[in-house]
Design a protein around this nucleic acid. Structure first.
Lengths: 334, 334
DNA sequence: CTGTTAGCGCGTTCAC
DNA sequence: GTGAACGCGCTAACAG
């Protein structure tokens, strides 16, 4: 058994109250006692029991992270950002997976409730009305990362999917591309799907070009979606000169399938990705892509939650800037 | 404030002890009371307070994960494996980063101690003697993942780095390659460095070939190391026909630099990676590599810790099998 | 089948 | 400057 403040009290001959004061540096005790207590604590290898503290203070200094079960590599960055900030503020982080598409979310929330987390960070899950209600009922400072509530009823941090895809498409247009495909987006996804499709269309139309249905291939943001897009374009015999992709993975899928068909990137086909995960810059040719600031999302989200805890500050939604990173997969037509 | 068993007791007119029995399904109570209690719990939205439970039972049903701060994508898989198993057994998982090369480890362990985690999973950190002592002093079921203690004093799960690299090298040899390079390994790393270098050398020598010093370029497992290796080979004018790489990232670095020099993979140069992270199969050409079963490492490691908790079963070290995955970056010389 | 009691480790009055 | 006493929410004897 680990030592407790009782043990320290016994050894030093002071009361547990005083030990507690010293350990928490609350002041109001003599120099002598302080030394005595600290020495004893050190000698016994005393370690706070956060569970006991939680019980009496009614706060756990713990933040709950809920992540879906898909394994795109960017979750790592977000979690990094969260944990770094939590660490700085002496908070701990407990992590649960909410299953594919958040199926296990209810259970995740239950766990978080049982652990009495002080705040909640929910990453990249499309919440339905019922789930939203569940979250609100927990009455905890909460922030959504890389997603948002369809009714905006919870604060979030993300980039503007609409603008980012508009920018990507427009960039291709400015490079002289006229037949621009779209690959891998899910139109039923109200957060990361539909708005991006809209951004793509608007960019095309803003240039007085027609949106061609056959140039759009829906999917699920995956590598496979990218491969299938190329397959589809081939079958329809309508190969675009450039493709806007749902993710870096989709872009790599496009490139992979293109390669198999003998199409060269970027000479014959330009490709632009989305996310700027590590695979983007490690690929050959290196992927031109839209960068999402994942680490910052995590860090700022965590900070917002913690500040709402200590300063009772309301959590504000925030749109973070994306960035178009030019590398080697887009070729100008001029 | 959330409802407690006291509230339930008051409403239903039974004692808190009985409420506790019902909630934990311990049996020994009437059908009537059970219904009453459950109904009240439901109505009040009762939620266990795990912190209070931890206090009295002296176990937290929490497992601590310590991960270094580097951001290779495979941590995600390991954590996935851990969390899935933890979830199944109703354990929670608390995550801390131990900084670059485990510099913050002491603090991580302190956090874990304060939270009174029941078990410890340490991922991919090379522990020095002092750190090992620290961990042992915590007196917790512990397992190391994808690393091991230099004195084998803690159980671990990993693949045999030595054998895996031997296999990779030997595979290249069997494809007819005679000038085989090695890129990106750190010889000072006693776990993932030196043994692999050894495996490489042994394979070469087993084929009565000389180990050429200039064909070996050390590094830090990174993409950059791969690029520098090619740079080096060029300067020395000693381009191998195949390269064994420290990681998939190193392999991609090799491929990237090779591409810039007009060297084609695999036509002019064969490359074999290590890890089989997602970038391996998404790359074009898809990377031939050594697969490490990361998810399984996490899952089996977590299971071992939990079983040692419930069954007092000792945790055994385990060498997991690697697998050589043939894709498109190695070309036979025949 | 059920209630009483004690105590887990700690922070926090309220006295002195 | 310090201590006694209480209670956070819960489980675990023990008694009935």
């Amino acid at each position: 058994m680990v030592a407790t403040i009782k043990d320290i009290a016994k050894i030093t001959g002071v009361s547990t109250a005083t030990v507690s004061r010293v350990i928490n540096q609350l002041g109001g005790y003599g120099n002598e006692t302080e030394k005595k207590v600290l020495a004893a604590a050190n000698q016994l290898g005393y370690s706070k029991n956060e569970n006991a503290i939680s019980l009496v203070t009614n706060r756990s200094r713990t933040i709950g992270i809920v992540i879906p079960n898909v394994n795109t590599s960017f979750y790592g960055d977000i979690v990094n950002g969260i944990e770094d900030i939590a660490y700085k503020h002496q908070y701990s982080v407990i992590l649960t997976h909410a299953g594919v598409e958040g199926i296990r979310l209810t259970n995740s929330l239950k766990v978080m409730g049982n652990r009495r987390v002080d705040g909640l960070i929910i990453v990249s899950i499309n919440l339905d009305t019922q789930q939203l209600a569940l979250i609100k009922r927990m009455n905890l400072p909460t922030i959504l990362l890389s997603t948002q509530a369809h009714d905006q009823s919870l604060p979030f941090i993300k980039v503007s999917d609409h603008k980012a895809t508009f920018a990507a498409t427009n960039y291709l247009l400015r490079q002289g591309h006229r037949k621009i495909g779209l690959a891998g987006l899910n139109p039923k996804d109200p957060i990361a799907g539909a708005p991006r499709i809209q951004g793509y269309k608007e960019a095309i139309e803003a240039n007085q070009l027609p949106v061609e249905k056959d140039l759009v291939w829906y999917g699920d943001f995956s590598f496979e979606s990218g491969k299938m897009a190329i397959q589809h374009f081939f079958e329809k015999k309508i190969l675009p000169s450039a493709i806007v992709c749902a993710s870096d993975e989709t872009a790599l899928g496009v490139i992979s399938a293109a390669f198999n068909h003998g199409i060269k990137v970027p000479e014959d086909l330009s490709v632009i990705g989305y996310d700027n995960t590590s695979i983007a810059w490690m690929a050959t040719p290196a992927l031109t892509t839209i960068k999402q600031p994942f680490y910052e999302m995590g860090a700022e989200g965590c900070l917002a939650v913690i500040e709402s805890l200590v300063k009772e500050k309301k959590i504000e939604s925030k749109i973070l800037p994306f960035e178009l990173i030019e590398r080697q997969t887009v070729k100008s037509k001029f």
